[in-house]
């Protein structure tokens, strides 16, 4: 059964969006060349590319942190003009509030729903339990390891029930083992919530492990140069990947190497 028929909310359309900055000496710098991108509801898409290729720009555009110089970004047909809770974001630097406990951080996301305090706490506790942090709710981010911090960030974002989840190199700062367990956790939660995910990474293997579709970006100016579908069933491992995925990996690597001057 096609995922798109199950969930019909969370469709993102980037329609010929361009981002330009005024650089030094009034020169116009194109951070993102006219870009078309569609994220189908419930899909998992990865963006790979070298640093400075505009993948964070594209992400910030969809998050509503940036406005396109030209073109538009739409969520379920409605134009995105600023940050909204329907579009959640997980940052590489966690962006947890260190002055709130793990519970306080998750509750922060729930406050806009005007629930009663007991209901809010119960939901926050359930979200923390879902990411395997039951019993840690009173701890502060400063007392948690990098992996646990990112678990709190996941709990916080899924508690807010966004239609789209943007992830900006979320596991880039974690060690290999913690990363692998975070991949498993993320896929696990995603399978249950079926939020549309856009995952930015510079790690090709991570993209091929997680995503249904991988967009390869290149710099000067930032643009999507290739799109590949990954059809291997989940859970995937590097060892059990199909010849098609291996070929895709080689192709992506070649693209990234050729654009790296």
């Amino acid at each position: 059964m096609d995922v798109a028929t199950v969930v019909d909310i969370g469709r993102v359309e980037v329609a010929r969006a361009t981002v330009e900055f005024k650089g030094v000496q009034g020169k116009t710098v194109t951070a993102l060349a006219p870009t078309e991108l569609e994220l189908t509801p419930g899909s998992f898409t990865a963006l790979v590319g070298p640093s400075g290729c505009g993948k964070s720009t594209l992400l910030n555009l969809i998050a509503g942190f940036l406005e396109p110089t030209e073109g538009a970004v739409r969520l379920d047909g409605k134009e995105i003009t600023g940050p909204v809770p329907d579009v959640g974001i997980v940052f590489q630097q966690y962006a947890l509030f260190p002055w709130f406990s793990a519970l306080g951080n998750v509750e922060f996301a729930l406050k806009r729903l005007s629930l009663g305090k007991p209901e809010r706490q119960a939901r926050a506790l359930a979200a923390l339990a879902e990411v395997g942090l039951a019993g840690r709710e009173r701890q502060y981010p400063g007392q948690l390891s990098g992996g646990m911090k990112q678990r709190v960030a996941l709990a916080r974002i899924f508690a807010a029930a966004p239609k789209v989840l943007l992830m900006d190199e979320p596991f880039g700062a974690l060690d290999a083992i913690t990363r692998a367990s975070m991949h498993r956790l993320l896929l696990d939660i995603w399978t249950r919530h079926r939020t549309t995910v856009l995952f930015v990474t510079h790690d090709i293997d991570e993209a091929l492990l997680l995503a249904d579709r991988v967009h390869v970006m290149s710099r000067g100016p930032g643009r999507i140069v290739e799109t590949l579908d990954v059809t291997d069933p989940r859970p995937r491992t590097v060892e059990t990947r199909s010849p098609q995925v291996s070929a895709a990996r080689a192709q992506i690597l070649e693209l990234l190497l050729s654009s790296d001057h």
Partner: peptide
Amino acid sequence: ETYVRASRSLGASRSREFVEVIIPAAS
């Protein structure tokens, strides 16, 4: 900037952002 962005994308109003994010971050 990340705190402000996180707060806004989590749907906090400007007044809640001020009390729960700006003040503690500056404290």
